[in-house]
């Protein structure tokens, strides 16, 4: 697989057929960018344009370049050459096969040794409460288990230099661990999110509106500080979640916020 130095997105049209305000976005190796906006504002369409490396051939007429060039059709389609891994919003699998068959088949598609399926299961089980077994039926997994398996599968089998992550906060899996698993060093990462903690940990964010990229905001130094504080609140909430999930009771609120 070739080294990826940059990805460039040229703006197309929004839902009303008007040019989107952001005309060009270029990201370099190691960049993490958020995609935010109300539901229905076009976040998932943007992600799918990137996944398909759109060449003015989708509804939005956006154009995506890798290393300032149009990739070949084979690079855009063949999973063995694919440069992009995507965790979509899907919460369930529909393929009627066991977890093992699925992982073996997918590792074959991505040209990986099938022994890595054990790493996938191990990683997935770090993210979910009830452990997933190789012999489980894929369609019978719970929402959280499916999501955890999708994350581990994207991280290990679809391992690619560009990663698209759509609403990782869904389905009650451990989101920070999941995000760490997906974001290796030197990758370009797009994160669609409604979660302020995740949104502010990115370097910049695209604001979506009416199906178009409306604004590009760099995370300010102050926002980075706030992001750290929010991280504490978030950690506190996650701890409470674990306590409640395991049948414990909560006696009092123990959160101290000095800077707010």
């Amino acid at each position: 697989m070739k080294t990826i130095e940059s990805i460039t997105i040229y703006g197309g049209l929004n839902k009303n057929g008007i040019q989107e305000r952001v005309r060009k976005i270029e990201l370099k190796k190691g960049d993490i960018i958020g995609i935010v906006g109300p539901t229905g504002s076009g976040k998932s369409s943007l992600v799918s344009d990137i996944e398909q490396i759109a060449q003015e051939d989708t509804n939005t007429l956006r154009k995506v370049l890798i290393n300032h060039a149009t990739p070949s059709l084979k690079e855009r389609r063949d999973p063995r050459l694919k440069m992009i891994a995507q965790l979509s919003q899907n919460m369930n699998f529909i393929a009627d096969m066991t977890v093992e068959e699925f992982l073996i088949m997918h590792s074959k598609c991505r040209n990986k040794d099938k022994r890595i399926i054990h790493d996938v299961i191990e990683s997935a089980n770090l993210l979910t409460g009830e452990a997933i077994q190789l012999q489980d039926n894929l369609t019978a997994l719970s929402g959280g288990q499916s999501r955890a398996l999708m994350v581990a599968d994207v991280a290990i089998i679809s391992e690619s230099p560009i990663v698209l992550i759509d609403e990782i906060e869904n389905a009650g899996i451990r989101k920070h661990e999941a995000l760490d698993m997906l974001s290796g060093k030197g990758k370009i990462i797009f994160v669609v999110t409604h979660d302020p903690v995740i949104a502010l940990t990115t370097g910049k964010r695209i604001i979506m509106k009416d199906g178009g990229m409306d604004e590009l905001i760099n995370t300010s130094a102050q926002e980075s500080v706030i992001s750290c504080d929010l991280g504490l609140i978030d950690q506190y909430m996650l701890n409470l979640r674990e306590l409640i999930r395991t049948g414990q009771t909560i006696e009092q609120l123990e959160l101290q916020l000095t800077n707010v």
């Binding site: 799918s48 996944e51 999973p79 891994a85 995507q86 965790l87 979509s88 899907n90 699998f93 529909i94 393929a95 699925f102 088949m105 997918h106 074959k108 598609c109 991505r110 999708m150 599968d153 994207v154 089998i157 679809s158």
Partner: peptide
Amino acid sequence: GDIISQAEREIFRE
């Protein structure tokens, strides 16, 4: 294909 995961899409294609 938009309804299923990227992995399932790749398996289907295979």
